[in-house]
Design a protein around this nucleic acid. Sequence first.
DNA 1: CGTAATTCTGATAGCTACTGTCAAATGACA
DNA 2: TGTCATTTGACAGTAGCTATCAGAATTACG
Lengths: 196, 196
Amino acid sequence: MNRPGLRERKKIETLHRLQEEALRLFDEQGYDATTIEQIAEAAGVSPSTFYRYFPVKEDVVVQDEYDPLIVDVFESQQEGTAPLEALRAVLTALFREFTDEDIERVRRRVRMIFSVPALRARQVGQSAATERLLAQMVAQRTGRSAEELEVRHFTALVVASWTVAISAWAETDGTKDDLAANLDKCLAHLEAGAPL
Amino acid sequence: MNRPGLRERKKIETLHRLQEEALRLFDEQGYDATTIEQIAEAAGVSPSTFYRYFPVKEDVVVQDEYDPLIVDVFESQQEGTAPLEALRAVLTALFREFTDEDIERVRRRVRMIFSVPALRARQVGQSAATERLLAQMVAQRTGRSAEELEVRHFTALVVASWTVAISAWAETDGTKDDLAANLDKCLAHLEAGAPL
DNA sequence: CGTAATTCTGATAGCTACTGTCAAATGACA
DNA sequence: TGTCATTTGACAGTAGCTATCAGAATTACG
């Protein structure tokens, strides 16, 4: 069987400890003023180890593992659903799983990402990957190519919409429901052609 | 009077030489493999000087000065124009000014930006500034606040739309008119609520 | 069990992006 | 031509990041 095992558990622990200590230090002293060495020491590991968990400094905040979940939820949607509707459902379902603690951690991370340009910059790289993923899935569903202009445009708009919804929410101290509401508002606005 | 003067002219020359040599070297050897020292030497200046012109390496490709032009064109639009229409006109007017040489340089730069993650990441920072600028202008026009969710959402979508239009165009060897056409297609798609 | 194989960690050396500082060089101007 | 302001180059230093390798911890297996 493939049980967790001590090694695996230790790795996850170290990962979380690095993320937590980093977030704490960034809050206390600022992102730039905090060195990898400090984070590593606070987490009780060597700088080498930090780089094994996070290829670049930014990733200690930015890295997440939502992409596979997104794919799962999307695929579990029934065939007929319109792409925008399907993607709305994906995010809704994703957030529903979150505990209150998760939500607070997301808020902290998002706030930091949007207040530190280097983090935001890195995050966009991740979003681009997610965007390509969405394009793939949407293309498959609608029998188009993921390279088509309309498909790429659609996914870019959806991701932009999400981003605004989430960042605006993170600035407040709203609840999980407020986040969902924000998301609905943005996607509805997009679907209406973004009238002003 | 405020004539150019030798000093000013030399500065502009140095700036352009740095940009050109950098682009050439990046093409030849790749972005990461090219050092500031190489660029500086190719342009006949010291590394110190490079950093005086470009705060970070990425800027030698990413930096541009369109923002003031965008503001000018937007403000010169008549009051009644709908925001989306006004922004479409802004880009159209902006591109109209470009010579064939300009267009080719833009294409090279855009291609490089979208093929080198570090450049793309930096570019997003710039786009964010432009986005805030648009939000300001649009807010003023429509008598809203630039912090309002709908306004931010609108501008984010427009910028995302532009970005797709331009990046898709840069992948081809289309003309200036093709770029304009792409832009129209994307904005129309956005205005229609991004149907698929 | 105990030993061998595998995986993870820490230490070290080194490269490059980037910052700060100061003296020398260069153009502006009277 | 001489003085002032600006630009430049040289130097030293910090930190992010890579590559490498020996030793330690965990796992697999006889």
